[in-house]
Computed example of a mutant assay.
Amino acid sequence: MLKKERQEKILALVNQHDYLSIAEIAKTLDVSDMTIRRDITELANQSLLVKIYGGAQKLEKIEHELSTQEKIDTNVAEKKFIGKVMNSIISDNDTIYIGAGTTMLHALPELKKANLFVITNSLLAFNYLIYNTDYRVLLTGGEFSRTTEEFYGETAEKSFENLNIDIAFAATNGIFENNITTANLVEGSIQRVAFKHSRKKCIVADSSKFNRSDVYTFYSLSDIDYLITDDKLSETTFDYYRSFTEILKEEQK
Results as ranks from 00 to 15, higher is better:
Thr133Met: 09
Gly141Ile: 00
Ile82Ala: 08
Gly101Tyr: 11
Asn87Ala: 13
Thr35Lys: 11
Thr236Asn: 13
Arg199Gln: 10
Gly55Phe: 00
Leu163Asp: 05
Leu124Asp: 11
Phe238Glu: 11
Arg37Ser: 10
Lys80Tyr: 12
Thr68Asn: 11
Thr237Ala: 13
Arg6Ile: 01
Ser220Asn: 15
Lys27Glu: 08
Asn164Trp: 06
Glu65Cys: 11
Ser234Met: 11
Leu123Met: 14
Asn121Glu: 05
Glu235Cys: 05
Ala194Phe: 10
Lys253Pro: 11
Phe210Ser: 04
Asn45His: 06
Ala156Asn: 01
Ile25Gly: 00
Thr245Asp: 12
Leu11Asp: 04
Glu161Trp: 07
Val204Arg: 11
Ile247Lys: 09
Ile22Lys: 03
Glu78Thr: 00
Thr120Gln: 06
Phe176Gln: 02
Phe117Ala: 05
Phe117Gly: 02
Gln191Ile: 06
Tyr152Arg: 01
Gly99Gln: 06
Lys232Met: 07
Tyr135Asn: 13
Tyr19Ala: 12
Glu150His: 11
Lys112Arg: 14
Tyr53Asp: 14
Leu233Glu: 04
Ile167Tyr: 08
Ile25Ser: 02
Leu43Asn: 03
Asp39Ser: 07
Tyr97Ser: 00
Ile89Ser: 08
Ala125His: 05
Thr140Asp: 01
Ile90Arg: 10
Asp92Tyr: 12
Gly141His: 01
Asn115Gly: 10
Tyr240Ile: 04
Met1Leu: 14
Ser207His: 15
Gln191Asn: 15
Thr35Glu: 14
